[in-house]
Computed example of a mutant assay.
Amino acid sequence: MTDLIASMAASASGMAAQSARMRLVGENIANADTPGYRRKLVAFESLASGTVEAGRVTLDQSQLVRQYDPSHPMADTSGYYDGSNVNLVLEIADAREAQRGYEANLRLFDQARQMSSAALTLLRR
């Protein structure tokens, strides 16, 4: 029974980590057109208990896209300003990956819950 509880804890922590990742993907997509915005990234960290958690949020240090628009308030004397470094195709791929990871953890959690329920039913007899 302890193994089932440990697997439920591991899958619940995976769901929480994937949820944090989805939140950041949503922020990145929402700010894709914000000048100077840097894409936010999160890495997962394994814990000694067999669970996982979302680590520190970091900013993508890749080059910001230079855009030409002399009428933009943030444009320099040459008419360019720094756009964001968010790639929507990459963000959509990350969102799908996080969604599938969340769903896999949810299925594992549900299977462990059903197995523990069946074990308790057998013990009651």
Rank of each mutant, 00 (worst) to 15 (best):
I29G: 01
R107W: 01
Q63M: 14
G79D: 05
I5E: 13
A104C: 07
G101T: 03
L90W: 05
Y37I: 08
F44I: 09
V89R: 08
I92S: 11
R38F: 02
L122P: 04
R100H: 02
A98S: 09
S11A: 13
L59H: 08
D3Y: 08
R124N: 11
G36M: 06
A119F: 02
A112G: 07
T2K: 10
M8R: 01
G50W: 04
Q67R: 14
A20G: 05
A20L: 09
P70G: 14
N28G: 02
D82R: 07
A32K: 04
G14F: 02
L106R: 06
V65R: 15
P73W: 09
L108G: 10
M15I: 03
I5V: 14
L108I: 14
L47C: 05
D82I: 06
Q114D: 12
D3C: 07
V25G: 02
Q111E: 12
R38N: 12
A48N: 05
L108F: 13
S46Q: 11
Y81L: 10
A112F: 07
A118Y: 14
Y81M: 15
M15H: 01
M1S: 07
S7K: 11
Q67G: 03
S49I: 00
V25R: 03
L122C: 04
M115I: 12
R23P: 00
R38C: 09
E27L: 08
Q67Y: 00
V65N: 15
L106W: 00
T51Q: 07
T121M: 09
R100S: 11
R56N: 15
P35C: 10
N105D: 07
F44P: 06
L106D: 02
Q99F: 05
R38H: 07
L4Q: 07
P73V: 11
S13G: 03
L64G: 03
S13T: 03
M22V: 01
T121L: 08
L47Y: 00
G101N: 05
L123C: 07
V65T: 15
S49G: 08
Q111P: 01
N31R: 02
A20Q: 10
Y102D: 07
M74Q: 15
R56C: 10
H72M: 12
P70K: 11
F44D: 08
A43L: 11
Y37L: 05
D69H: 00
A12K: 07
A95Y: 15
R23Q: 13
N28E: 03
L24K: 01
Q18N: 12
A54Q: 01
A112T: 07
N87G: 04
L122R: 10
N87Q: 08
F44T: 06
N31P: 05
H72N: 10
S84G: 04
E91S: 08
M22A: 09
A104K: 03
R107F: 04
D110I: 14
A32H: 06
Y102K: 08
P70F: 08
L122A: 11
V57W: 00
V52E: 06
M15F: 01
A119L: 15
D3F: 09
L122F: 04
M22N: 00
T77D: 15
V25N: 04
M15T: 02
D3S: 13
E45V: 06
Q67D: 05
E97P: 00
R39Y: 01
A98L: 11
T34S: 11
S7Q: 12
F109L: 15
S46D: 12
S19K: 10
G55P: 02
V25Q: 01
Q114C: 02
A98Q: 05
Y37Q: 06
L88P: 06
